[in-house]
């Protein structure tokens, strides 16, 4: 029977559950050699994707991505973190930051499969459609 990427990820998560750093590293190494012997190395990318998802779910971690034009000030960062924490109390929040000129201004927050689009670009587009009506 073919083992899916999701099942591999699930198995990996269960193996390293409760192990310390060193033992976990060894398990991952074993896991990789298993993948190699099963000829499934091509699936690695998918397995990593599912593993992240499962891991975050297991340990209640919210991965968020903040997109702004300029670097984010520490004050704003804590505000965003507070907002995300308010959504789910027991969760830990991991914020990664990116900057892009494309959004003109404002802030875009992505977490899980949700998006909070407060960029100037989207605002301007909304204004345009409402004026055209």
């Amino acid at each position: 029977m073919k083992i899916s990427a999701k099942q591999y990820a699930q198995a990996l998560l269960e193996i390293i559950e409760g192990k310390d750093d060193k033992a976990a590293k060894q398990s991952v190494l074993d896991f990789c050699s298993l993948l190699k012997s099963n000829n499934q190395l091509a699936q690695t990318e998918k397995i990593i994707y599912y593993f992240r998802k499962l891991y975050n779910k297991r340990y209640n971690i919210i991965e968020a991505e903040v997109l702004t034009k300029k670097a984010l000030s520490a004050k704003l960062l804590t505000e965003v973190e507070a907002y995300l924490k308010a959504l789910d109390k027991d969760s830990q929040v991991e914020i990664s930051h990116k900057s892009s000129d494309k959004i003109i201004g404002g802030i875009v927050v992505k977490y899980g499969d949700k998006i909070l689009d407060n960029s100037l670009k989207t605002r301007l587009r909304q204004l345009k459609t409402s004026l055209l009506k």
Binding site: K110, D113, K114, I115, L116, D117, N118, T122, R123, Q126, L127, S130, L131
Partner: peptide, 17 residues
Amino acid sequence: LKKQIEKFKAESEQQSF
């Protein structure tokens, strides 16, 4: 134009992506 722009309320809500 002014009126229309005033009427425009910028709302941002959480969307699925």
